[in-house]
Design a protein around this nucleic acid. Structure first.
Length: 471
RNA sequence: GGCCACGUGGCGGAGUGGUUACGCAGCGGAUUGCAAAUCCGUGUACUCCGGUUCAAUUCCGGACGUGGCCUCCA
């Protein structure tokens, strides 16, 4: 362990916080459920992306940047995708229509997510590139008598697994009590779920020993995690809502196919999100996509920087519910600006280490909020010019996925317009001549261009001016 | 009906069996030609009802409230 930081993570499987020990410190392996690419990702989708990016960064720091494998899948086979393809491209052949939908949505997702300050996962496999692996897994399950063929569907037999339901803490009787499971005559147990289903002519399908069809929802993650991470790996993450049935069924498939006791050692789940105190839904009209926030005034009347969204998301512990609101975004924005102001002028290099106290807080089940308190303290020291606080703050911000000037200068390709420097020089000359009227005029002109000027005195006591973009 | 979270001061949000969380906003002060930025100081809290305890916001039980899952929704 490079930094000697002991990690402790909350494990849904045991409902406790546990010391984390990787199976192989030279290859720490994490799988996170990624998007189904049929529509813009909403801000709820952004939460696991951001949370597990933070964990990825922490793991890379602790075990080494090249010793962590992070897999986030792209689900590009799904009935919602089919429906969208038929709706949007009714005149194209189905496969072509589907390809259009998934390619467009995937690239949109990747650019949205990049704006949130996230690193790219090591591998981002697509379901459609892993059909053969899924079929092999299903064949194994049938061979081991954990799956059966009925009515043209291959189903997983939950009764064949003694400890099915371990992750979600529910037993099969509980599920039946709800009486909301469709009783299908062809299922041996109503809780049995589909591994492979037949496709009609107008549905995408692949040839298989069980006829032309397509995979069930859960099997892709079992197949892809095995392919890239092995039969047993360290961490599996996703949203709270995936615990049941998705993750429960992934576990059932993988363990039964491989005859293993464990699929992933640690299961981590982020909490849900509301918008302005209400459940996010299209019918309530408060459905907000990442892209809306980055590009439009859908929330708060103007677009928000991706790093502001990142901070707004991390301000609350990942397992707690979040109420996503304009007020929260404003608070995140002013906090990030405070940090960037305090870090300004820092000279950073590759050797700069993130702050130890920040790392310590993050190592405690990703307690970002306590880490941010530590960051506030460093920022305060930086503002007082204490020691290496400024460098430390800058390095820590970058480690956490924030840039050093995104809120102080303009977004992309920003270069300081020469007239700003000239105007500042003119104004300083005016000030030294005690021509305050002229100085104020210059400041007002720049303010109208969105540039805020701030006077201060340098170490020699001479008057200086700095500037930043104001909103 | 079953299972699972959560309920902290104006807001955000940690944490703890007894001692200031912290941040934002507010207020007071310093600094400043003015302003901004920055620094210093400062008030308000733990949903309700029982129980355990010398002591509970923190443990236990219950109530109420909010949200999630049991419907291929992160």
């Amino acid at each position: 362990m490079i930094s000697g930081t002991p990690l402790s993570l909350y494990n849904t499987l045991t409902r406790t916080k546990e010391a984390f020990t990787p199976l192989d410190p030279d290859n720490v392996r994490m799988y996170v459920c990624g998007p189904t690419v049929y529509d813009f990702a909403h801000i709820g989708n952004a939460r696991p992306v951001i949370v597990f990016d933070l964990l990825f960064r922490l793991l890379r720091h602790v075990y080494g940047a090249d010793k962590v494998t992070y897999v986030r899948n792209i689900t590009d086979v799904d009935d919602k995708i089919n429906a969208r393809a038929l709706r949007d491209f009714p005149d194209l052949p189905l496969n072509e229509a589907i390809r259009r939908v998934t390619e467009k949505t995937e690239s949109q997702f990747l650019s949205d997510v990049a704006a949130l300050g996230t690193l790219e996962p090591t591998v981002q496999p697509r379901a459609t590139d892993n059909i053969a692996e899924m079929q092999a897994l299903i064949a194994d399950l049938i061979a081991r008598e954990h799956a059966y063929n009925a009515n043209g569907e291959v189903l997983f037999a939950v009764d064949s697994m003694a400890d099915y339901g371990q992750l979600s803490g529910r037993n099969l009787e509980d599920n039946l009590a709800g009486a909301r499971i469709a009783i299908d005559a062809h299922k041996k147990n109503p809780a049995d779920f589909v591994l492979w289903k037949q496709s009609a002519e107008n549905e995408p399908g692949w040839d298989s020993p069980w006829g032309r069809g397509r995979p069930g929802w859960h099997i892709e993650c079992s197949a892809m995690s095995e392919r890239y991470l092995g039969q047993t790996f360290d961490i599996h993450g996703g949203g709270l809502d995936l615990i049941f049935p998705h993750h429960e069924n992934e576990i059932a498939q993988s363990r039964c196919a491989h005859g293993t006791e464990v699929m992933a050692k640690v299961w981590m789940h982020n909490g849900f999100l509301q918008v302005e105190g209400q459940k996010m839904s299209k019918s309530l009209g408060n459905f907000v996509t990442i892209n809306d926030l980055l590009q439009t005034g859908a929330m708060g009347g103007h677009a928000w920087h991706g790093e502001v969204l990142r901070l707004a998301m991390l301000m609350t512990h990942y397992r707690e519910p979040i109420d996503f609101s304009v007020k929260r975004l404003e608070e995140a924005e002013s906090k990030l600006r405070d940090w960037q102001r305090a870090a300004r002028g820092a000279e950073t290099g590759e050797a700069d280490e993130p702050d130890a106290s920040v790392l310590r807080e993050l190592a405690d089940d990703l307690n970002f909020h306590r880490a941010s308190v530590a960051l506030d303290l460093i920022a305060k020291k930086a503002n007082r010019d204490e020691g290496h606080a400024r460098q430390c703050l800058a390095a820590t911000l970058q480690f956490l996925g924030f840039s050093l000037d995104s809120l102080l200068t303009s977004d992309e390709g920003w270069e300081e317009p020469p007239h700003i420097a000239a105007a500042i020089a003119d104004r300083l000359a005016a000030l030294n001549a005690k021509d305050f009227a002229k100085a104020d005029t210059i400041r007002k002109d720049l303010a109208e261009q969105g540039i805020a000027l701030m006077d201060y005195k340098d170490e020699a006591g001479a008057r200086q001016t700095k500037w930043e973009i104001k909103r």
